[in-house]
Design a protein around this nucleic acid. Structure first.
Length: 559
DNA sequence: AGCGGATGATTCC
DNA sequence: TGGAATCCCTCCGC
């Protein structure tokens, strides 16, 4: 059965309107209001009388069509557009958009997120693939080696939708990247904004190490050494590449772009994109000025000169080597492009293809198995999919509207492939926009079938109230790791979580700090441990608290 | 509980 | 071209 579309059980809020303000955004909540014990009064608040926070606001004719004189109003004003007559912000757990602004989801004017067509049915605005069969240079050069053999029947998707274990206050700054160990199934690496590198054995939940002296600031990307999985490479905004031995924590610095230290922001170079080309024995990194650097893995020496691969002065945030064809490289960055390169001919302006986006491209990945698809995450709130790099690359096969806005305080969202999915269609990405789940404003992690644009599942947990921009699916197991603010979470499918729980109860743990208001009972207890891991009992106790009454439902879109 | 701070892309001049 | 203003469903700690 197809996945259900999201229900729209939002509390009804009547927005008080000005005479000239146009459409209301809230008048079509008719179906299936199972709201039994709603805490917020949904029946229209009179803004004026009993709210003591009313501000005296001068509406001083900023709009041309507005009536001339200065009027003084006691009404609350919208904190977004500063006009009176409506208010933006949270009403309970539901966010009310400012109707004067374009939709926060799809960025189109004329409606708000509440009634955006993309919210009701995710596949609504998906642009279908133009099934053209043209030949391009990629086809000519790489076609024979790369031509995929993708099975036509999709297997059922297995969604890790239950928090299995979690660590909180592990990092002292927000998590920026995650990486599963290539051979040890229970090791997760995490990088943070401070430059710290975490090694977590989530099999033995309490075993974790933090290496704090490798980088001075943001750890932007990391990758295991394919020839020695005891070491990882990392690129940091401190301008260095590190190669760290995970056992000893001893880090080698392969490159330092700021040998003379801080000379001001215009000269400070930061490293963002990173990948490894094991066939060629190269570490590839890219900086914030548009340049790509190659480092030889064996000698640790720079190979050749830096090459400008994106607009001069713009950040190159992502690099990805094709998993099948080592001569193909994909890059993306702040110049609104993802670019495909031939490693044998790397020079400024020589990209094979330039994939245009309307905003910054947070990530661009080849598909993990065949390497023939491309998936990008752009700050225009759209995922873009190119079904075949041998097809027409002038426009994406699909654009999927999804809420993953840029926010300077959040790690940029990146849609990640499920490396286990043979059909190369399942993708995971955190959601920015919140939704009211039984009275709690939660930000789910979305599983999307990029072949159709359908939302396969949205997973969330009442204990995770923060946004989860960083997500990674396990290369072999049905496990999802997510980084949400400073916390790490591991998810497993419900059935498997229960099995684990019976076997080893200690593994089912939750952490208190992710909650806005930890219950007092457990707050004290968690304070004296330094890792803030709570037990099953804590979870159960918390479940009794007012608020989310039950674990919010998940959409099980298996087929 | 309410506030400040950290801080990046974009637009405007 | 570059600096200032703006954007405005963050999150944490005081």
């Amino acid at each position: 059965m197809p996945p259900q579309t999201r229900r729209t059980a939002f509390p009804k809020v009547v927005i008080e309107r000005d005479t000239e303000s146009e459409e209301s955004s809230s008048d079509e909540e008719e179906e299936e209001n199972d709201v039994e014990g709603k805490e917020e009064e949904e029946d229209e608040e009179e803004v004026d009388e009993h709210e003591n926070g009313g501000t005296i606001e001068e509406v001083s004719a900023p709009k041309k069509k507005e009536r001339t004189p200065i009027t003084i109003s006691l009404k609350k004003v919208c904190k977004v557009c500063k006009r009176s007559g409506h208010e933006a912000g949270f009403k309970g757990a539901t966010y009310i958009d400012c109707p004067m602004k374009p939709c926060f989801l799809c960025k189109m004017p004329g409606h708000t997120t509440m009634n955006c067509p993309h919210r009701v049915a995710t596949e609504h605005g998906v642009i279908p693939a133009p099934r053209r069969n043209t030949h391009n240079s990629l086809d000519y050069v790489f076609g024979r080696q790369l031509r995929p053999n993708i099975p036509t029947i999709k297997p059922a998707f297995v969604i890790p939708d239950q928090v299995n274990c979690a660590v909180i206050r592990y990092h002292s700054r927000r998590v920026t990247c995650l990486e599963f160990h290539p051979t040890n199934n229970n090791i997760l690496l995490s990088g943070d904004k401070k430059g710290q590198l975490g090694v977590w054995d989530f099999g033995k939940v309490y075993e974790k190490t933090v290496y704090g002296n490798i980088h001075g600031c943001i750890l932007n990307n990391m990758k295991f050494n394919p020839t020695n999985d005891g070491t990882v490479y990392a690129a940091s905004s401190d301008g260095t590449i590190s190669c760290t031995d995970l056992e000893t924590g001893i880090a080698l610095s392969l490159m330092n772009l700021n040998p003379n230290g801080w000379q001001g922001p215009s000269s400070w170079r930061m490293l963002y994109g990173l990948d490894i080309n094991s066939e060629k024995g190269l570490v590839l990194v890219a900086d914030n000025f548009g340049f790509l650097y190659l480092v030889d893995i064996r000698s640790n020496n720079k190979v050749g000169e830096a090459i400008m691969i994106h607009k001069k002065g713009s950040k190159v945030v992502g690099l990805h080597c094709n998993p099948v064809q080592p001569d193909l490289l994909l890059s993306c960055g702040n110049d609104h492009f993802a670019r495909i390169w031939d490693m044998r001919r790397l020079e400024a302006g020589s990209s094979l293809y330039n994939l245009a986006h309307r905003r910054v491209v947070n990530s661009a990945y080849f598909s993990p198995q065949s390497g023939s698809k491309i998936l990008t995450t752009s700050q225009d709130n759209r995922l873009r999919v190119w079904d075949s790099i041998f097809g027409n690359l002038d426009s994406p096969s699909r654009e999927i509207v999804h809420s993953h806005d840029f926010n300077r305080h959040l790690t940029p969202f990146r849609a990640e492939w499920d490396p286990k999915d043979p059909s190369e269609s399942l993708v995971v990405i955190g959601r920015y926009i919140s939704e009211n789940y039984n009275g709690a404003a939660l930000h789910p992690i979305d599983f999307i079938d990029i072949s159709t644009g359908q939302l396969v599942a949205e997973v969330m947990d009442p204990n995770i109230t923060t946004i989860s921009p960083v997500n990674k699916l396990h290369p072999r197991d049905d496990v999802l790791a997510s980084g949400s603010s400073r916390s790490l979470f591991m998810w497993r499918p419900k059935e498997k979580s229960e099995i684990v729980q019976q076997k080893d109860e200690k593994k089912i743990i939750l952490c208190g700090r992710a909650e806005k208001k930890p219950s007092k009972k457990f707050k004290g207890e968690s304070d004296d441990s330094d890792d803030d891991i709570l037990s099953t009992k804590a979870k159960n106790a918390k479940a009794k608290r007012p608020g989310p009454k039950s674990t919010p439902r998940n959409l099980k879109g298996k087929r």
